[in-house]
Design a binder for these strands. Sequence first.
DNA 1: ATTAATCCTATCAATTTAGTAGGGATTACA
DNA 2: TGTAATCCCTACTAAATTGATAGGATTAAT
Lengths: 137, 137
Amino acid sequence: MLSKKTKYGLKALTFIARSGDDVPVQVSVISKSEQIPQKFLESILLTLRKSGILGSKKGKHGGYYLRNAPSEIKMTDVMRVLEGPIAMVPCVSLNYYEKCDDCPDENLCSVHKLMIEVRDGTLKVFRNKTLADLSGV
Amino acid sequence: MLSKKTKYGLKALTFIARSGDDVPVQVSVISKSEQIPQKFLESILLTLRKSGILGSKKGKHGGYYLRNAPSEIKMTDVMRVLEGPIAMVPCVSLNYYEKCDDCPDENLCSVHKLMIEVRDGTLKVFRNKTLADLSGV
DNA sequence: ATTAATCCTATCAATTTAGTAGGGATTACA
DNA sequence: TGTAATCCCTACTAAATTGATAGGATTAAT
């Protein structure tokens, strides 16, 4: 299941992308418009900022803005920040690989082989999608 | 993340498929061979039996067996039984559809559109795979 | 009968999720 | 310079899920 965190994060990014111009967007505005608990959203946007996807401006008239054009913001990056590894098992993860304790030989593991294909299918989608595709901008 | 339940379930099914012949396979045997906690495995095989994928024989020399040939056991079915819906959000689930509370119009929702593609990518894999592919039988 | 197996229900500890609470730091603007 | 608005940060918490474990009831072969 997609976590609420990821869902909210994607919606917020879409909202910011659609806002278009250079003025930063406030958490409160996104929160109201997208029906996302404000404090929760704050923490999500904070992680997106720390990961470099969003920038922020503090104080009055502050808010969040995209660090790059929507077409430059890849879903692979966004999903890894919000949801974590794209692979369903660590032993097929490209970025967070970990060997399974139980599995003596990965190449003989039926789960391993299946999950590589699932991962590739998902990656194919995320690699071909940017925030521009999501937001229509 | 793939749950241990699903991982264990897939390994157990593979094991049973590879055992080949008609004698039912005991939980204790699978448990030892695949390093799966026996009581946990019991409950997993029980759900697989209740769903119709496995059959069982009680009492001495009892155990579990496949109800169909491995090539007839589709991953879509197995995954739905073990892991639940294949879709990452209920609003794109084919079998367990649910509308989102927040979303006024699905067709305008960026998350919705993205997750449909992810679902289709994953379905493509599961629809093309049977237990025969996993187990090499 | 005895033994070996599945079947069933209940319980539980650890982890994760989805928040909430409260305030600190920074900036714009009057 | 004061005040309001805004992000920033830490800590806490309730609920749900996960990954089991415990104990026995039932069934079947010998």
